[in-house]
């Protein structure tokens, strides 16, 4: 009888999930190494947000370093995360793929310079929704109360601390070929409008991964605070559509 209730090892951790988890742990360790704060949101299952935060702030294993992690549990996850994050921070969400607030947070996170980790279950978010998607492939609605998420963030914490034992690997290699010339290439950086222009042809203040900057918005025309735009060479070229909140 209990055989059906107890999960197998393969149920708990597939090859794919262990690969995703490892990549997330290394990314998180690198971000912490560079001074990141971890922000944790779980609008529907708030205790999980607190559990992740206490895991990092007050490690269960003596001698492991305390790391800055906060649970954000206010009513509006977007405005809380927007205010909290600094470029280089990490946002971790424990939420279903359909959670409107979390969808909006991970969509905007690149404009805030934050890397995102999304833990959940059921159907997965669309590819690329977050930097790291750590998913329990089960549609059982009881998953959040069975310890599956607890295992996931326990392992994330454990693997992150293993990474700290390899200081040589905590800095991403510098011969990375992803770098492109921002002015000459077609790169569009995600930006979030902070302040609309105060007069015609004046720039808007736009927040991007590197901080706030003046951005020409004459191509788009009218913008409002909170609008997401693609910024290229100092100008906003595209206004991204509003997603239903």
């Amino acid at each position: 009888m209990t055989a059906q209730i107890a999960p197998t090892a393969a149920d708990l951790m597939s090859e794919e999930l262990s690969t995703d988890l490892s990549a997330a742990a290394l990314a998180l360790a690198r971000r912490f190494h560079s001074g990141a704060t971890l922000w944790v949101l779980s609008p529907e299952w708030e205790p999980h947000a607190h559990h992740v935060a206490v895991e990092f702030v007050h490690p269960v294993i003596m001698g492991k370093r305390a790391l800055p992690a906060f649970a954000l549990t206010g009513a509006d996850p977007v405005s809380e995360a927007r205010l909290a994050t600094r470029p280089g921070d990490v946002i971790l969400a424990v939420a279903g793929a359909e959670d409107a607030g979390i969808r909006e947070v991970v969509r905007r996170a690149p404009a805030w310079g934050a890397e995102t980790i999304w833990i959940g279950f059921g159907h997965r978010p669309e590819p690329g929704a977050a930097n790291h998607v750590l998913w329990v492939d089960s549609a059982d609605p009881m998953v959040p109360a069975t310890g599956r998420f607890v295992l996931m963030y326990h392992l994330l914490w454990e693997l992150t601390h293993v990474c700290f034992e390899h200081p040589g690997l905590l800095v991403a290699s510098t011969d990375c070929t992803d770098e492109v010339c921002i002015t000459c290439s077609d790169e569009g950086r995600l930006g979030e409008v902070v302040l609309a222009p105060t007069e015609a042809f004046a720039p808007a203040i736009v927040r991007t991964a590197t901080g706030e900057e003046d951005v020409d918005v004459t191509v788009i025309g009218h913008v409002s605070p909170g609008d997401l735009v693609l910024v290229h060479a100092g100008a906003a070229l595209v206004l991204l559509e509003e997603v239903a909140r």
Binding site: M13, S18, L159, V162
Partner: peptide, 14 residues
Amino acid sequence: LLVDLSASARGKAA
């Protein structure tokens, strides 16, 4: 390192 982390994750999950 990533290979080792993955193996460690599966071991602990087991």
